[in-house]
Structures are given as C-alpha cells and as structure tokens.
Design a protein around this nucleic acid. Sequence first.
DNA 1: CTGAAAGCGCTTACAG
DNA 2: CTGAAAGCGCTTACAG
Lengths: 332, 332
Amino acid sequence: MEKESKRTTIYDLAKLADASPSAVSSVLNGTWEKRRISRKLAERVMQLAEEQGYSVNVQASLLRRDRSNIVGMIVPKYDNRYFGNIAEQFEIMARARGFFPVVTCTQRDPDLEFEAAKELISYQAECLISTGATDPDRISAFCNASGVQSINLDLPGKNAPSVISDNYTAARDLTNLILDHCEQELGWSGPLRFVGGRLADHNTAARLKGFLSAQHDRSISVPDSHIMANGYSAESAAMVLKDFRPDGPSGIFVNSTISLEGVVRWHSELEKDADKVKYGCFDWDPFGSFLPGNIGMVEQDVTTMLKIGFELIGKPQTTKEPILVPCKLRIF
Amino acid sequence: MEKESKRTTIYDLAKLADASPSAVSSVLNGTWEKRRISRKLAERVMQLAEEQGYSVNVQASLLRRDRSNIVGMIVPKYDNRYFGNIAEQFEIMARARGFFPVVTCTQRDPDLEFEAAKELISYQAECLISTGATDPDRISAFCNASGVQSINLDLPGKNAPSVISDNYTAARDLTNLILDHCEQELGWSGPLRFVGGRLADHNTAARLKGFLSAQHDRSISVPDSHIMANGYSAESAAMVLKDFRPDGPSGIFVNSTISLEGVVRWHSELEKDADKVKYGCFDWDPFGSFLPGNIGMVEQDVTTMLKIGFELIGKPQTTKEPILVPCKLRIF
DNA sequence: CTGAAAGCGCTTACAG
DNA sequence: CTGAAAGCGCTTACAG
C-alpha cells in the first residue's frame, strides 16, 4: 500500500496497469466497450482500482462533464414525522430517477435557508427544492439569477412553481369530523377552538379558513378568543390553554403534532370533564389514535407531492399558481 | 441578463470588471486584503457577482484546494425520532465546526449503505460517519483502503472507532424500573417479556443481556418463550403478541418505538386486565408518557455521542473498543 | 484497438 | 498593487 495521504488517481492506475490515463478513465466510467478497449485491459484496470481503493474524484469529473445530476433539497427539520418523511422519500425517489440527492436541514432559520441554498448551488445542483421555507422567494430569486431551476414544496412562493397540500379542504373536513363527533357523542355543537401555528404562515391561514368555513356552513359563529394560533411549540400550545378549564363539552382543532403535544399535556392534567373534550389534529402521528380524545388526524400526501415535484424538474416553468394536493383524513 | 444556460464564472466577472481572473478569484474567496487588492476593485467585483447571481463552482475550487471540509454521514432513516435527531444535530454541529455536512439515508439496506458511502468518498468527504450501519466493517474497510477516516455511530464495528450507547446498563435500569412498578402496583414480580428487535443485532443483544441480568439479580428466571425479538416493525410486534391474552399481571420490555406501536395496538385491544399490563420502552417518543401502561422510556444521549464523534475527527485512530455513552432514563 | 492534448473553473506560488 | 501561468483529476473529440 502506498502513502495513505494521497488518494489514488487514474494516473496512478495508468502507471500500474501500463496503460494511458484515457484508457483507464474510459474503463472506469463504463465507456470502454464503446471505445473498444480490450476486455483484458479493462479487467486489469478494474482489478487494480479495487485493490487500490480507487474512487473517482467527482469534483474533477463534474467539472469536465456537462451535467451534475445533483438535485438539492432544503427542509426545516428531520426530527419531525412530516419533514423527515419528505426528506427520506425525496432521496429514494431521486435515486430511482438517476439523480444524486443532497438534502440539508435549515432549522426554520431564513438566513440558514438562504446560505444552504447558495451552497447547494455552488455544488452545481441542477434543481433546488425548497421545502417549508420561510422565505422561498428570496431563494428562488437567487436561483433564477443563477440559472438554476427551483421548486417550492409545502409552502408556496411567487418566483417558482409550488406544490402544496390542499390545506383548506382538509381543514374543513377535519373540522366537520370534530363537529360530528361532538354532536353525536356530547350532544354539543361548537364552536371549536383552533390551537397552534401562526396566522402569518400561509398554511395556518388556509387551515383557519377551512376551520371557519365548516362552522359557518353550520351557522356556528366562532369568537376571536377561540383562535389560539400562537406558535409552533408544545409549550406555546400548553400555555395558551393553561387557563382554559372546560366546564362541559369542548372541541379543539390542533394545528400540527408539535402543538398536539401541548394539547395532550393540558388534557391529561384536567381534573374534570376530560372525557368531554374532543380534538383532531392536522398532522399525522402513529401514536395519535391511542391518545384519549383524539378523533382523527390529517395525513398529507407526501408521495404525490414529491411525484409532482419531480415531474416539474427539467420542464419549462409554466404556471406559478400553487398545485394543490389533497390530504388523507384518518378517522379513529 | 446574459444567456441563462451557462453559469457566470470568474472569467465573465473579470471581463465585466476589467480585471484579471486572479484578482476576481481572490476578491471572491476573501484573500484580497492579503493580496492588497484595492478596496475599490474589490467592491466593484462583489457588486458584479451579486448582480450576475454568481456562485463559486465548488467542484473547481475543491479540485484545486487541499481540503474539502466535507464530512459525510449515512443514517438508516430520517423518519424516526432517534435517527432524525442524529442527522439534524450532526448537521448543526458540523456547521458549527466549519465542516460541510452531507447526510444520506440508506434504508437499512447493506448495499445501498455501501454505495452511498462510496459516493460520499467520491465527493471527497474527509471523514465518513456510519450510523446504525448493518455492515459497518465493509464500509470502513473501503474507507481505510481509500485513506479516508471513518467512525461508527450507534452500532459498533471492528475497522474503525465506534461510539455507541451503553445499551446494557440502560436496559438493566429500565428492566428494574418495570419490575419495581409491577411489584408496587400489581404485587407481581415477573418474569417480564422482551418484545422487538433482532438478536443478531448488537444493540438488541446488549439490551437483552441487561434485561436478563436485572432479573437474574432478583432470582427471576425468564423462560425462552418470553424473548420475543422478531423484528423491527409495528406489525411484527403486534404479531408476536397476538395470542397472548394476559390472565393477570404482566410486564413488557419494548425494544424501540417502532415495536412500541405494535405493543400499544395490542394493548388497546385487550378486553380484560389491560390495566394490569406495565411496559417500558428502550427509545424516546414525546407522546410516550400519555400511553396507558407505559411507565418509562430510555432516551439515548445523541448530543454526547456526536460530540465524541466529532472529537475523533482528524485524530489518529487509537482504540477500537467501542466508547460507551450512558443513556437517560425517563420515568413517567 | 489506443494515446496525446485540450479544457472544465478555480487557486496560488511566482514574478513583477 | 496586480497578472500570467501552472496544475488539481478528470473526459472526450480527434487523430491515428
């Protein structure tokens, strides 16, 4: 074994195999049959490459080639059922399509999002998917300036095509489900409370609209105090409910599993009428159906969103209107 | 704006700024003050770079430089609390240390693991962290041959240093906790059942050892039929318990949250004596404490494991004995 | 069947 | 204060 400090190159291999670097290169990148290099030489080179622990230097290879095949994704969190699933499926689907996926996680920090996006472009990503980005327009503006395609997922933007869940419809359906349960099991007909998220956030706004419209259709008027969208954390959800001690039936629309943690904590500490609280959650968790009071959850259709996203890659960007993907309502 | 098809290079910028490519390069990579390039020129170049949406071609830059700063990680899943958290914290900690993290998810598929590892090395990763790899030795053998450092996380290997949880101790503590609850609340003293995982898997084996040793210390003998380690899925856990209808008190050691799903499903379908089942789980989930019968969970100390992993980077590889990191026992 | 040569976009020691 | 030139490791059209 040679000095470990330097990696083996095609020149090392060429010397060892007593062939030219060009020949070695074409053996290693699979074009040797086309170049009609003898099978004997090819086998010798591949054998040597194996022995020497050779691996192609992608930096050098990409520099010379026309395409990188890299498709980048930024995602707010991995440690989250929804986004973790998106990242995971993205990688699988990208590989299946012959791309090299590079995902990076940006902690809902707009500056980190932008830096990470620039980094991915520096790595010659051919397309960048911004998932749940807080400032997608800044990112796609930069992509546009660099001549790199970009796509928004989960949260829409103006400068690139967007693929998002049909939050409005799913929220309306979930609200109706909660209302039905309240009527049938508690003989009570609203109004419900809305807990979690931020109203400035597009998805929360769309969900709130669905929440209100379902109740409007039943002539239920919802007081402002019932809209408790004060953030994305278990703490803020528990906080906003702290002083609410139900005195009879009540129902809650929970916006995301992270808020659900707070709601469940609050619920478990109720001293009376805990069984008169019904809630549903816009988000999916496998333990959801075992939480007392939880009557249903909305699961976003990640596979379809990604499939549509991949179909957009390489296509000329046509419409900028968000493409809406229906969600699945899971009833317990 | 020029033709979008080609990205802007330092040569384009040099022409526009009426300067040499060398000067542009040093302005862009921050060495211009050292080279005593005039502030005026520097500002002009940076302005132009901004306008043209320039971003450095990392492939070209790395090819010329000595170091890549890339540190790679393979991880089985993102859509999993434990591994998702590892990937997320890895990226944060890597950035904080000036590295460029690239994580990829390999679905517990040994071949995909190996391919992904090779790919990361092709991208000139300086160090590769194999997390929960099914065949870590094959990967580190390849890394060794290529002169790339490698580290095993979560699951140990022979060819590289390993940082793993102290599964044995934590499992023993969790077992004792379950036994204590069973005695105090049910007046019953084992033996417990062990559900989930695979005995061939190092971590399952270590946990089983702790499980057995805690009971051995209390002179409880555990029949073989109580060891139900038949896989990592909610289905297999539910399956193995299908015909178990407890007729009195019972206790279960659940190996991972994925198995916990199956256990909870089984538990929720019991017609009698459901309140006489106590279980604990080796893994953490925020909804865990709200699941009836769940008395405690083990949370692995991801931050410490990663911190130790990062300390190993760049250091000569000394001991091959796994470094054990204590877990935290969360009691409900 | 195979090699010499140019060039991908950078960086940096060297020479003014 | 600044530029010309070499070279990082590859690929590929071109010329035998």
